[in-house]
């Protein structure tokens, strides 16, 4: 952390990130809290701009980054489908065409006409995820959001994500659960203090990361 001239505090979150992903890649991001996983996802999504270097993306990018998930609490589920659809760059006609499919995938039933503030966390996630799936995403960025769904929905969601990567898309997800990453990802990047500590094949990185975390647990205890 550094203090700039006007008293504002600047935080350097990421440094020297060199990463290139190709069609069909499913990258898992692991790292301790505050390692820069979410920040990296936001940079990939084009929401934060890097101060140095550049980000090159080819294809429709859909971010799903926060537990609030870009939903408007006071609007109904149906209104939120429109709202988030527009945020993701869908046209009005595309949204109407996909509406039914989104509602059925989210399994919200009659709740769809209730304000989102009455939803549980899992219901919100199901809605937001279903809307994002309706977009023909080529690059999907997920931040821990699937963790709040029940196991049935998680299985369904994982299957959908696999479909995306199979039809030549890229999925990047930050996750704390090593088994989930092993199940889904083919590549893993381990972030530490804003830099990539290790990048490579899934099992290898996860093994090293788990070992590191275990030894940290022991020294802390």
């Amino acid at each position: 952390m550094a203090e700039a001239g006007d008293g504002a505090i600047q935080v350097q979150c990421l440094k020297d990130i060199n990463l290139s992903l190709d069609k069909g890649d499913r990258l898992g991001l692991v790292g301790e809290n505050g390692a820069g996983k979410s920040t990296l996802l936001r940079v990939m999504a084009g929401i934060y701009r890097p101060q140095e270097g550049c980000v090159k993306r080819e294809g429709k990018t859909v971010p799903l980054l926060d537990i609030s998930l870009c939903l408007d609490d006071n609007a109904t589920g149906r209104q939120n489908i429109r709202l988030r659809g527009l945020f993701l760059g869908l046209s009005s006609e595309q949204i109407s065409a996909h509406e039914q499919e989104i509602i059925s995938f989210s399994e919200l039933g009659d709740h769809i006409d209730m304000p989102v503030r009455t939803y549980s966390t899992g219901m919100r996630m199901r809605l937001a995820f279903s809307i994002s799936m309706a977009v023909e995403a080529e690059i999907l960025l997920l931040d821990e959001v699937l963790a709040v769904g029940d196991s049935a929905f998680q299985a369904k969601a994982t299957a959908r994500l696999r479909e995306i990567s199979d039809r030549a898309g890229i999925v990047v997800m930050a996750l704390h659960s090593s088994p989930a990453i092993m199940k889904f990802c083919n590549k893993v990047a381990w972030l530490q203090d804003g830099a990539v500590r290790m990048l490579g094949e899934c099992h290898e990185v996860i093994r090293a990361y788990d070992q590191f975390m275990h030894s940290k647990e022991k020294t802390d205890a």
Binding site: I47, C70, G89
Partner: peptide, 9 residues
């Protein structure tokens, strides 16, 4: 802020 942090519109 909620929308801005999640969307590049």
């Amino acid at each position: 802020a909620n929308f801005i942090r999640q969307s590049d519109v």
